[in-house]
Design a protein around this nucleic acid. Structure first.
Length: 295
DNA sequence: CTCGATCCCTGGACGC
DNA sequence: TGCGTCCAGGGATCGA
């Protein structure tokens, strides 16, 4: 569930608390979510965490070259995806490891940077040089850095549903189910609307909605739905500002019509059936269902 | 290109 | 209290 605002929150926290720290050694538990556990283990120890930043839904821990190496591999980084339930948190080494602690990095100041993930939907990888560049190149625009023209260009002639495109990390990096639904609600666009059908005014509205929703969410340190906590163990507050996501049956904040839930692009999607009018294709589907019932 | 289905995994909700 | 069952959900992958 960590999406752009949650990952940004964690990354900022880690930048404050672990940037500059040296990784002395690494201990691994379950490793099925790690690209190449042996490489990760051997490459991490002895490096400094230079800087922590967000890249889409990933955290990027930029690493120094190791002493004695000529840094032939180019820039190196630890890539961390939190999946649904991942947490990356610094703790005093003396504190017991909670269940599902799978990666423990001993830091120079006596703390440990721990990766905890019950479902292991996350991902961790040590990457450097060309491999790293290639991996990062797979992803689309950062929603907070793109201009309107770039946003529109990525969307306007695609035949997929707008929600599917918003969720596609190759198109935009960092948007997930919550913020896609919230943005679409704010822009009054139905999630199943075909992207190429959107008018310029709608694209402009969606662009603005996406940015304001994400910025406000970052300000409130993300949404804590199930158990999201930031690097300091604090929950976010944006869930109190949700207008669509998770509000099935509750009145729309604009028109009081009950919020509906439907599967779009394989994800449960929340929307106001009045403010976000369904596209023709959806109406057709409804008529078919009606026919079946009356038959 | 776009879609849906399937798998990964565990905890929480729910029914009995 | 304790089972069993179902579901959520990002992303990879595969077939239609």
């Amino acid at each position: 569930m960590p999406e752009l605002p949650e990952v940004e929150t964690v990354a900022r926290g880690l930048q404050r608390s672990v940037a500059g720290q040296k990784i002395l050694s690494v201990a691994l538990g379950k490793t099925d979510f790690i690209d190449n556990p042996d490489v990760l283990e051997s490459e991490l120890s002895g490096r400094n965490v230079v800087r922590v930043e967000r890249y889409g839904k990933f955290m990027l821990l930029w690493l120094s070259a190791r002493q004695g190496s000529n840094n032939s591999g180019g820039e190196a980084a630890l890539l961390v995806h939190l999946g649904m339930t991942g947490m990356l948190v610094p703790r005093p080494a003396a504190e017991p490891h909670v269940k599902h602690t799978h990666v423990v990095m001993q830091l120079g100041d006596g703390r440990e940077l721990r990766y905890i993930d019950p479902r292991r939907f996350g991902r961790m990888a040590f990457l450097e040089g060309e491999t790293l560049a290639e991996e990062l190149g797979r992803f689309g625009l950062d929603p907070l850095e793109m201009r309107l023209e770039q946003f529109s260009a990525r969307i306007h002639q695609r035949s997929a549903r707008i929600k599917a495109l918003l969720l596609d990390q190759r198109v935009f990096r960092g948007v997930g189910n919550i913020y896609a639904d919230e943005s679409l609600w704010k822009a009054k666009i139905h999630p199943a609307q075909l992207a190429r059908r959107l008018k310029p005014e709608q694209l402009q509205k969606l662009y603005a909605a996406l940015q304001s929703v994400l910025q406000k969410a970052i300000l409130l340190r993300g949404s804590s739905i199930s158990d999201f906590l930031d690097a300091e163990g604090m929950p976010g507050e944006y869930q109190q500002h949700h207008r669509a996501y998770g509000r099935e049956g509750k009145p729309c904040f604009r028109c009081k019509t009950p919020i509906r839930r439907a599967m779009v692009a394989g994800r449960s999607s929340y929307f106001c059936p009045n403010c976000q009018p369904p596209p023709r294709s959806e109406k057709k589907k409804k008529r078919m269902a009606q026919k079946r019932r009356t038959r």
